[in-house]
Design a binder for these strands. Structure first.
Lengths: 218, 218
DNA sequence: ATAAATTTTTAGACACGCCTAAACTTTTAT
DNA sequence: ATAAAAGTTTAGGCGTGTCTAAAAATTTAT
């Protein structure tokens, strides 16, 4: 049996490895989870014993095949629940993260299957992030981060890659949501910040914001 | 903060006290939860410290006002989730208990409120049991257990008071579900078992089964 | 190449929730 | 009324997951 804490570690390792690619460091996991490096070390040994990760002391960790499968399944549940909360219970996209974080640990394959059907097999969650399928495939979406598109081009926001209330609240303030059309007017070479146009209004955002916005150009 | 184990104890104390009325014994709780009497003793001390129960060594325990409120709220969540699972996800009434037992511990008042609205403020769950309101009132239903109605009278099953798969499966086999009309033909004084008629078919059930069937007579 | 800084692991401790075995209360029976 | 039975609590221990402080390994800088 896999415990709640273990599930959270697997999820954190997956999330971190998606950002960095390759082996994940103890500190990176500690940051992601909000715990001490010592606790992470302890847990990595346990996950190793259960063959959920491949771990070498001082060398970092990666998910095993089994671990990846488990982690992706948790992600799948998280995103299905977020979709339920927004589409069926009318929560705002900035409100659902914490509750989904609890719901993702409910154990019942039947439940997840039925929930998915009830939601009409969505491919993307309310933040535009792909919902892994039952067999662990992650839908691709042909999008690129806003900070990587050419100056002068237009595109639509298809998703965000950060699920944090402060970030999503800021987007709302900027009038950005899924579907919003954005044109990149200028990139400031000093700090890579961007001048953009939304509904004929010029605005200015940092590179840090831009890199979490997924754009589909026309 | 109240832990998951504590919530389960409160629920168990409430359930036990509804059956027996008055103080609840350590063993009764141990049976309900499926743990040892020693563990119950430990936990009762902790619940006492948190003012969730009134407990005297060797004398039994009752829920405090705060404890009652918490326990009823868990029951409310359990029954709302069961309603969701049956009405929205098309689970059978005998399949939902275990999953609801997990879902009842999700912490979010907002979620419960919205779920209730989404389900159209149901008063009874799929087993006919009353769903406590937000302020802790438990709807009454004007029903009596089948083993207490007079021989020769007819009535309809409005609910069951036992949420166990084996019991519910047996009812299905007997062709009993919510709404079913039952006539009591005879009560055997030896063992209090009952001859009943359902859809013109004579059947025989034990008193133990009859007492868990809530009937509304015409 | 070696010292300093950073990262990671180990050691020891603690709260939680559970267990068994033994001791203690209360209830029941003679 | 007292002994036996039943019920309950205490004592001591265990696994999980966390922490801080100290030790060890690795990386970075001079």
């Amino acid at each position: 049996m896999i415990t709640l804490a273990e599930e959270n570690y697997l999820k954190a390792i997956l999330a971190t490895s998606l950002n960095t690619d390759g082996k994940v460091s103890t500190n990176a996991i500690a940051d992601e989870i909000g715990t001490s490096a010592a606790s992470v070390s302890d847990m990595l040994k346990k996950l190793q014993d259960k063959r959920l990760v491949k771990y070498e002391k001082y060398k970092g960790v990666i998910l095993s095949k089994r671990g990846t499968k488990k982690a992706i399944n948790i992600l799948r549940k998280h995103r299905l629940w977020e979709t339920f909360l927004v589409n069926k219970l009318a929560f705002g996209w900035e409100e659902v993260h914490d509750v989904a974080e609890q719901l993702e640990h409910i154990k019942s394959e039947e439940l997840v299957d039925r929930l998915e059907a009830f939601l009409n097999h969505p491919q993307f969650d309310p933040h535009g992030e792909p919902i892994p399928t039952k067999n662990g495939e992650i839908p691709k979406s042909n999008t690129i981060p806003l900070n990587e598109i050419k100056t002068g081009t237009k595109g639509n926001v298809m998703g965000v890659t950060l699920d944090e209330k402060t970030f999503l609240d800021y987007l709302t303030k900027l009038n950005i949501s899924i579907g919003t059309e954005i044109e990149v007017l200028e990139t400031i070479s000093f700090d890579q910040s961007l001048s953009i146009k939304i509904e004929n209004k010029k605005q200015h955002i940092s590179n840090d914001v831009a890199k979490h916005l997924l754009i589909k150009t026309k």
